[in-house]
Every structure is written in C-alpha cells, then in structure tokens.
C-alpha cells in the first residue's frame, strides 16, 4: 500500500497542552506604574538579555546523549553562534547544566553536588529520554537508575529522543532563552 508523505516534519500532537503562556503580573497595574519599579524592570530585562545570550554549559556528559551534545558544540551545529559554546569545566563558572544521558543512582549525588556548586541564576536542560523519566531503562522493579532528572535538580527544558538530534538541543537552548528573557512573567 502506498503512503502519503504528509506531516513528516510536523510536530506530534501532545496529550497535554505544552504551550508556554505569559502570566499576568500579580502585583497589578499600580505597582507596574511606579517609575522605580519600571526602571528596575528595565535593568532586569537588560540583565536577562545578557543571561539569555551567554549560557555557558557545564562540561559533562552522562551517557550516549552526550555524543549529540558534543556534536552540537562542534563545527556542524556550532552552539557558539548563540553564545552557548563556552563549555566551562568548573561548575562555579557554568550557567546551564545539560543533563545528557542516563542518571544512575550512583551518579545522582554527584550531579546534585555539581548543581549545588553552580552559582545562581542557573538552569538545567534534560536531554534525552533517560533524563526525562528513565527512558529505555525504565521498567517495573528496576533498581539502577533515577527515573527523571527532575527528581534531583529543577529542570527547565525537556528534550525527548534517544538521543535527540543536535538540532533538538539547539531548539532547547532557544526555548530556554525565551524563558529567561521573559523573566518571572513565565508559566510553564
């Protein structure tokens, strides 16, 4: 039987609504009209622009997904175009933690320690099925892996796939940028 080549590059229709919606400022119009608040908000926006455009990832990979992360940093995909190509070896100088790979229970405390060593404001990207919820290694009564990176660190961006392509990681970075630029006016 022949197939219709339609919707090939399209997106899946999710079961739950995943779209990001801006939140109304709970402080209301009064506070927003205060010139001091506005001035601070402008400064905040400026700093957020800086943060969004200079996301230095922490150099570490956990499993196979790290290969795609390296590919994203290399010449073909070049994360450095977005200012995210400075992979810092020390957690003290990194802004974003790319959790790329299976998180074994042995590794979990180390990851948490690295996360605690990172100075704020900091973000985390869960790359690959393993870091979202255990992925291929999740089965009843498994004893070895942590089912989801968000059990140890607060994750901002989830990228599914096994492994995701470098494009997906770049798309994740761009979404993270949007999130940072929106500041607190962001509901996920």
């Amino acid at each position: 039987m022949g197939k219709v080549d339609k919707g090939d590059l399209g997106r899946f229709l999710p079961l739950v609504d995943r779209s990001a919606t801006p939140v109304v400022d709970p402080r209301g119009a009064e506070v927003a009209a205060d010139p001091a608040v506005v001035r601070l908000a402008i400064l905040d926006d400026l700093l957020n622009m800086g943060r969004a455009n200079s996301l230095w990832p922490l150099t570490f990979g956990l499993a196979c997904c790290a290969m795609e992360m390296m590919a994203a940093g290399a010449s073909k995909y070049d994360l450095d175009r977005f200012g995210a190509g400075v992979f810092r070896p020390s957690a003290r100088q990194a802004d974003v933690m790319i959790l790329a790979g299976t998180i074994s229970k042995k590794m979990a405390p180390v990851i948490r320690q690295l996360w605690d060593q990172m100075p704020g404001p900091k973000w985390a990207i869960a790359m690959g099925g393993c870091t979202i919820d255990g992925g291929p290694f999740k089965y009843p009564n498994q004893y070895a892996i942590v089912e989801g990176a968000d059990k140890i660190v607060p994750v901002d961006i989830y990228i599914p796939g096994c492994p995701p392509r470098p494009e997906a990681l770049i798309a994740g970075f761009l979404q993270l940028k949007e999130k940072i630029k929106a500041g607190r006016k962001f509901n996920r």
């Binding site: 090939d8 229709l13 990001a20």
Partner: peptide, 22 residues
C-alpha cells in the same frame, strides 16, 4: 513507521502523544 520529528523540546516533562489524534 518512524516519523521524522527531530526538533522537539519543551517546558514540560510529559511527552505522551496521541498518535491517532490526527
């Protein structure tokens, strides 16, 4: 068959999709 979806990323950990939806 395998799809060609390659740039998925999101703010949510729920990646269940309904394949018959379309």
């Amino acid at each position: 068959e395998y799809s060609k979806v390659y740039e998925e990323a999101g703010y949510n950990r729920d990646w269940r999709v309904d394949l018959v939806a379309e």
